[in-house]
């Protein structure tokens, strides 16, 4: 088990119902994509937030990554929708 800080933004944050949390992850969670799949098993709020997995953006230690990126060594993982700034 690894403990990881997760942060959520915009409608991902609203649907999950919190902006951040620390979770224990099973060793089977290796990539960012594994993390999304794991979170969806944790409850309806996660299922609703991460329903369309392919649109969810992931950042590890404040840098964008693809879903196949390994999460080992991550201090902070952020999940959020496509960005709409500017």
């Amino acid at each position: 088990m690894t403990s990881i800080n997760l942060v959520y933004f915009a409608w991902v944050r609203e649907r999950i119902g919190r902006g951040e949390e620390t979770l224990e992850l099973p060793d089977s969670v290796v990539t960012a994509g594994d993390l999304l799949a794991h979170l969806k098993t944790l409850g309806d709020e996660y299922e609703a937030a991460l329903e369309h997995e392919n649109v969810i953006r992931v950042a590890i230690n404040q840098e964008h990554v693809e879903h196949d990126e390994k999460i080992a060594g991550a201090r902070e993982i952020a999940l959020f929708p496509p960005m709409t700034g500017g």
Partner: peptide, 28 residues
């Protein structure tokens, strides 16, 4: 800079209506 800022800088816009309604998140 603007093209990458709009698609890669982590900002999200939410609209609030003039009538007080919550319009929702702007789509990319």
């Amino acid at each position: 800079i603007m093209d990458f800022l709009k698609t890669a800088a982590p900002f999200w816009k939410k609209e609030h209506g003039a009538d007080g309604s919550e319009g929702g998140w702007v789509s990319a």
